[in-house]
């Protein structure tokens, strides 16, 4: 149980961190730069509606049944929603704040780092909160279908052995992890933005 939990946790942590960082970075780029937005938006709009588990057959062929597969699934699951929330957050920043910063002598990079991204934080955190829970739901599903280790795989084994107790414990762990991840980001958001919002 402990080893399976640890496997799932590591996969979620790596996949979610990589997906969030990539989503954040490309989201900032698309929100700030119109050209980047115009170039990337059509491709992303096309890929975004595909559910993360829909990629599973293709990823199995590309990466095989190994550790990269679940991490790639979590990456895809986290990347798009965080990207969209970041783009929305950046685009929603009142233009006058940018004008004020520019008049006060700030360069584009400084405007982005000191004004635009901090003001987009509430939107970014909405994405992080939702997707941190979603990452756990997706990893369990992926492990049930295609990966031999992790909490999802353990639940499938327990089902074949008719071990309802293990299944219930796994469900409780899943619930607690989803909630803990969401609460962690809610706490972080409160810490960073509560004073001024």
């Amino acid at each position: 149980m402990g080893r399976n939990f640890l496997s799932s946790l590591i996969r979620v942590l790596i996949g979610f961190s990589a997906g969030s960082i990539a989503g954040l970075f490309i989201g900032i780029m698309m929100g700030w730069n119109n050209l980047a937005n115009k170039a990337l938006n059509p491709i992303i709009s096309l890929i975004y509606p595909i559910p993360a588990l829909g990629w599973l057959p293709l990823l199995m062929l590309w990466f095989g049944i190994g550790e990269i597969l679940p991490i790639a699934i979590i990456f895809i699951c986290s990347f798009f929603p965080i990207l969209y929330n970041t783009v929305t957050g950046i685009k929603n920043v009142d233009k006058n704040y940018i004008f004020v910063a520019r008049i006060l002598g700030a360069s584009d990079l400084k405007i982005l780092s000191t004004v635009v991204v901090p003001l987009a934080l509430p939107n970014i955190f909405t994405g992080l909160k939702l997707e941190s829970g979603m990452a756990w739901r997706v990893i369990i599903a992926a492990e049930m279908v295609a990966i031999p280790t992790g909490i999802g795989a353990l639940m499938m084994k327990a089902e074949s052995l008719i071990r309802i107790d293990i299944i219930i414990i796994c469900l409780i762990v899943l619930g607690v992890m989803c909630l803990s991840f969401e609460k962690f980001f809610a706490f972080l958001e409160k810490k960073l933005t509560n004073r001024w919002r």
Binding site: D94, N96, F99, V100, A101, I103, G105, S107
Partner: peptide, 16 residues
């Protein structure tokens, strides 16, 4: 704009 040495007060003030 960042080299014109202007002070500008917007209607909404836009304090950060």
């Amino acid at each position: 704009a960042n080299q014109r040495r202007i002070g500008y007060l917007f209607q909404e003030l836009n304090l950060f």
